[in-house]
Design a protein around this nucleic acid. Sequence first.
DNA 1: GCTTGACTTAGAGTTAACTTTAAGTAATAT
DNA 2: ATATTACTTAAAGTTAACTCTAAGTCAAGC
Lengths: 135, 135
Amino acid sequence: MKTYSITEAAEHFNMTPHTLRYYDKEGLMPFIERTSSGRRVFKEADMEALKIIECLKSSGMPIKEIKHFIEWCSEGDSTLQQRYDMFLERKASVEAQMEELKKTMEVIEHKCSYYKTALDSGTEDIHKTKKVTGF
Amino acid sequence: MKTYSITEAAEHFNMTPHTLRYYDKEGLMPFIERTSSGRRVFKEADMEALKIIECLKSSGMPIKEIKHFIEWCSEGDSTLQQRYDMFLERKASVEAQMEELKKTMEVIEHKCSYYKTALDSGTEDIHKTKKVTGF
DNA sequence: GCTTGACTTAGAGTTAACTTTAAGTAATAT
DNA sequence: ATATTACTTAAAGTTAACTCTAAGTCAAGC
């Protein structure tokens, strides 16, 4: 079975070995095994767990809460409901973020055309004078 | 013309007066006028500027860069191109964030159905045994 | 006239998520 | 055998964006 060193794992997720050690220290990776000399060995299952950690992180979840999820995972079936609820919450949160970004995008696009018009006429004053063509 | 106290302005944007003073201190609001006793007076134009500041902030722009934009605004037409370019950049950044969120959403939705299935069968093992019905 | 509450300032403190440092061990390359 | 590189730990430092504290001013209500 393929395994990864900390550097390989870090490269795979576009982060530094430092960050992976930090995650481990914060309790996000209690499952990682070590070689006899103490080095971390990342297995496929660990890479899969890292993928979920990354996903939760990009959904805006703080590391301390991700840690709770990891703990639930090692507690087995008794925490299935919590874990399901957590992902439903994440889903709602990401949906809200998407909505927020849409609103932000509307304002930005408005400003893009505002500055396009200003640039074409050479001055921002075009938006104050509201020139009417044809007179 | 309607004006707002710092508390009214803060409420309007769902932040605290502290935060508005912090923005002012960081150079985001060089346009704010004061009463004879030194209190900030927020005019309609200031509220409009705050709306843009909020928009840039939700697009992920750090306060120091927003400050540059504010400086460009007071430099007049000579900075129109920079400001236009900046909003184009913001647009690209928000589009990228939306893409990222979409990918995150896919993983989350997958996990939602994973845990739904597990809950229905009472155990997470259902995903390991890959039970085939009909045999 | 005095209290209350909103405002002012400068500056210190907080929090999250790294990021760096220092000091050391282990495995690999020449 | 030695130099380089990858790894280990504990702990301090960094950064952004607030957030709070202390000490004080000012205007309105009773």
